[in-house]
Amino acid sequence: MANKTSTHAHPKHLYHHFIDSEQQFSAAKMGMWIFLGTEILMFGGLFAAYIIYRAWYPELFTMASHELNTIWGAVNTVVLIGSSLTVAMAIKSAQLNQKRNIAINLGITIALACVFMVIKYFEYTHKFHLGIYPGEFYTFDGIEHPKANIFFSLYYLMTGLHGIHVTIGIGLMSWLLWRSLKGDYDSEYYTPVEITGLYWHLVDIIWIFLFPLFYLID
């Protein structure tokens, strides 16, 4: 780290407390990685609750899982994986200095994320219609198990928290889109795109765990 002085001029995006862009970029990236660590721990709490209840009531999880629509779950999985791809392409475009492609790829990512949320919305309303509400509001009588409400509490909590993350991702990406349309990002500086991309991959990976854990139990 020593003696990296005046090799670059002082670019606009460089904060005063960093020595150079490289230091700033690697710091931002590291910060995001650590943040993702905390996210995993946060979801980890819910996954722990899931594992414990599944170990206690395996038959409940098999029965209740049939109430979830595997096809729409699978579609959503594909949609999210696709959006991970487009966000990676946005970063690649930035590295190649293709400013317009950054915006296009970000736009597709946002659209896919919205598709995911819409499908989720229909899945939720369908369940509410049947009386499958979380916790004590649960009124569905199609599952012969006294703790069926807890399965759906976990389902709503975990997919709900994930949904909140997707929504935050849409917000972040819209902001990136706006700034990329202004031409703020290029191969010299694309840190926000890169670290939001990291965040988006995490959101994707969490879904890849949630999908089999809830939809594909047999």
């Binding site: 996210e39 721990l41 946060m42 979801f43 709490g45 916790g135 509001f137 807890i150 509490s153 909590l157």
Partner: peptide
């Protein structure tokens, strides 16, 4: 983060009775 999620669950327990 684990405390955060635990306390969120306490709140949910009171709001929704997640059980």
């Amino acid at each position: 983060p684990v405390l955060a999620i635990t306390l969120a669950l306490v709140g949910m327990e009171r709001l929704l009775g997640i059980g």
